[in-house]
């Protein structure tokens, strides 16, 4: 049986544990991607969201075996991109980060949304972030920041 491996933030990594392990735990414990947070462990909060082949997934609901040979991107990889910088700037200007625990998942949800729809309206943004719970902000600042990033980062997505 082939060994279990996938591409994490651009580099191929091998996983020696069980294929049934949660991707969330593998990312945090094996590869020290601690930007990936566990908020509930049931797919109900989005704090552990990552991109798998460019698509948003809750890593608590993904078994490692399911990402065999796939591209997995966490904030550790995404933060090196120009798109991240556009989001970073907008989130900074609008103070859209409070406690910060939901932020990594929110940013990847925003990336997933903008890569599909580079000029979303407010309703689309709210929909795109609807799986990411934030208990601090009331969401306005986050929604406005995603909108601003889309405007000022025009052409990046």
């Amino acid at each position: 049986m082939a060994e279990l491996s996938f591409i994490l933030n651009g580099s191929r990594v091998r996983y020696d544990g069980s294929a049934a392990d949660r991707l969330l735990d593998a990312l945090r414990n094996e590869y020290h991607c601690t930007s990936v947070k566990c908020g509930c462990g049931e797919g109900e909060c989005g704090a552990c969201a990552v991109l798998i082949d460019g698509v948003l997934h809750n890593s608590c609901c993904v078994a490692v075996g399911a990402v065999q040979d796939a591209q997995v991107v966490t904030l550790e990889g995404y933060r090196e991109t120009a798109r991240f910088q556009a989001l970073d700037r907008a989130f900074a200007e609008l103070s859209a980060v409070q406690c910060g625990f939901c932020t990594p998942g929110i940013l990847l949800a925003a990336e997933a949304l903008l890569s599909r729809s580079p000029h979303p309206d407010e309703a689309e943004i709210r929909e795109g972030l609807s799986g990411n719970l934030c208990r601090c902000t009331g969401y306005n600042a986050i929604v406005n920041a995603v909108k601003r990033a889309a405007e000022e980062g025009d052409g990046l997505w």
């Binding site: 601690t34 930007s35 947070k37 989130f91 200007e93 980060v97 910060g100 932020t103 940013l107």
Partner: peptide, 21 residues
Amino acid sequence: QSVVRKDHGDKVSGRSLYTGD
């Protein structure tokens, strides 16, 4: 007048270490 929060950079980049991290 709003400024960039002191905790923004570490949090937005996922570098902040919470207790479980």
